[in-house]
């Protein structure tokens, strides 16, 4: 008989407030049920209020790990991408969100965890270590992630430079990177808006990219970021039917 091997929850030993702010968070039965209910409510919202249209859904891998990346126009973006993920994988796909915006206190972190399933990343301190933690989680758990490599929402609707952090996550691995283009989110909830407008949203999902042969170093990270940006931009220029 095989010896029993125990693998406690990766967030074992953390208090509830530490747990919701940790990248090691691992949902249980209650967490998954809560997420499914939240996802159902969000899908209804997008369908009725924004008439969300998704094309290229078949490009999303059916197995983990993978990373979805897109242009960043509004606070709706992570929810839009999460809405495209197959239901069976939804609780294992984590949008990466700015800790200084969404994880400033327990209530905000708990709501972000419930509705967005987000993981925090500190933009202003120790990004290298934070990205190493995310890379371990991506590969070891394994899980899916949603990232916006621009690092901030666009102020004028134009696509900005992609930061090399995305390369630090996937360079030299077989992790699939799925480029996506979000259309309409800037008009629905731009960076300066407080309340979403009932604008139509469109999500174009492109074929996955793999960067297994790219060296896991500064030059490789920059190359990964550039190639992904080209793929994302291409979806915006000629959206899939």
């Amino acid at each position: 008989m095989e010896p029993f091997t125990y693998k406690p929850a990766s967030d074992h030993g953390l208090t509830e407030s530490q747990r919701v702010q940790s990248v090691h968070r691992e949902p249980g039965l209650v967490g998954v049920l809560g997420r499914r209910l939240a996802c159902a409510a969000i899908n209804v919202y997008f369908a009725l209020y924004h008439r969300l249209r998704i094309s290229g859904r078949g490009n999303i891998p059916t197995e983990l790990p993978f990373v979805m990346v897109a242009n960043h126009e509004s606070h709706l973006d992570a929810l839009i991408l999460a809405a495209a993920v197959p239901r069976a994988l939804r609780h294992r796909v984590y949008p990466v969100a700015a800790a200084d915006a969404f994880f400033t206190n327990y209530r905000s972190a708990a709501l972000t965890t419930l509705f967005v399933n987000a993981l925090p990343i500190h933009r202003k301190k120790v990004p290298a270590r934070a990205l190493a933690d995310l890379r371990h989680k991506l590969l070891d758990e394994p899980c899916g992630m949603i990232l916006f490599p621009e690092g901030a929402r666009t102020r004028d609707g134009a696509l900005m430079r992609f930061k090399p952090g995305i390369g630090m996550l996937v360079a030299g691995t077989r992790v699939k990177v799925v480029p996506c283009w979000i259309e309409g989110a800037f008009e629905a909830l731009g960076a300066d808006a407080k309340v979403p407008k009932p604008k139509r949203l469109t999500l174009n999902i492109g074929p996955a990219l793999v960067f297994e042969g790219v060296p896991d170093e500064r030059e490789g990270w920059e190359r990964v970021a550039w190639e992904i940006r080209m793929a994302v931009e291409g979806l915006g220029v000629s959206p899939q039917s």
Binding site: Y6, K7, P8, A9, H12, G28, L29, V30
Partner: peptide
Amino acid sequence: GEYARATGVFRDRVLSA
């Protein structure tokens, strides 16, 4: 819930349910 998370059996959600 605590026992299941400590031993790892919580990952089999059908059994925990």
